[in-house]
Design a protein around this nucleic acid. Structure first.
Lengths: 182, 182
DNA sequence: GTCTATATTGTGATAGAC
DNA sequence: GTCTATCACAATATAGAC
């Protein structure tokens, strides 16, 4: 399960000025290192050598800052799936690899409702496209997404019994979905 | 999606004295009403009309109190699955119904690592048994669990697009898993 | 763009008296 | 079994000076 980490920002960031990009960059590092819970304005400010209130000159609130990370993350995730290949099996492998390589980013973009009002138009649909294309049918795509999400989520949350082997579960489910897609 | 709410404590609670049961009861109500984040010792105490430090005379710490709720919840969940029927389709229906009827309890018992050191022996395995029995094979059971968990989790987190129809996704996946089980 | 000061609210946890 | 007092630490956010 080696990685293709979503390090650099892959979203345009066209509307962000230099200072905002610095702040986002620090926030991204903090997210990766300490998780969603570790991403606080106080820590972002400390790492920049400024005080928390100063951040409000650059972003209206925390939610706006997080939305930038979410948009970036969805973009990176989408690209990872597109690069992964075309069949359900390839997409599933790419999905799992991305999620396990970027666990905190994955949690940020899947565990809470999307800040849809702050995201670029069409981004959510673009992110779903590779799976829909591979599954052929929207319902089956939704099912496959849920399966992959559940596997990753349970693995990241340490909810499988310690001795559980996960590779066979992935394989059997993918085969079942592929059979259903035919 | 009517309910079989996990209200009353269904776990023995054999080792708990009267006062501890009162505290657990308040904690359960708080969890149901305000979610995992709303369950704090300060609020538990306030509802009991005492001060937070007093709780430490009854439970060593917050984790121990939560573990009682988790044990109860796993027990109730298991029973809901057992009562639900025997095929994969019946179990899936029961799974979904329980999770959506008790969203906060479901989150408590699935989103974080289990406090295995504080749970009754065998409880985790007992909870898994109905799914394993229905799937026939442990790997397929794991896959089916992940699918159901993913569906429920994404629905509870409002991560499906607003217009997504979920019933067909459940149906198609169950059919696919049933076909694979044969 | 940054600061100080402040508001507001909250969190789990311990010591020691009653 | 409960209290007071306290720790230690944290969070997002605003007003207004510089």
């Amino acid at each position: 399960m080696a990685s293709a980490p979503a390090t650099g920002s892959s979203v345009p960031d066209r509307e962000l000025n230099a200072r905002q990009r610095e702040i986002v960059s620090v926030a991204r590092a903090l997210l990766v290192e300490d998780g969603v819970e570790g991403l606080t304005l106080g820590r972002v400010a400390a790492r920049l050598g400024i005080k928390p209130p100063s951040l409000y000159k650059h972003f209206a609130n925390k939610r706006e800052l997080e939305a930038v990370l979410i948009a970036e993350g969805l973009e990176a995730f989408t690209q990872a799936l597109e690069w992964g290949g075309q069949g359900l099996a390839s997409i599933a492998r790419a999905y799992r690899r991305f999620a396990l390589s970027n666990p905190q980013l994955y949690r940020l973009i899947t565990e809470r409702p999307l800040p849809r009002d702050l995201l670029p138009d069409g981004l959510e649909a673009r992110a779903a496209a590779p799976i829909v294309a591979a599954a052929g049918d929207p319902d089956l795509a939704r099912a496959a997404w849920a399966f992959a999400h559940g596997m990753v989520q349970l693995e990241l949350a340490d909810r499988f019994p310690p001795d559980a082997e996960l590779d066979p579960a992935w394989t059997k489910a993918i085969e079942a979905f592929e059979a259903a897609a035919r």
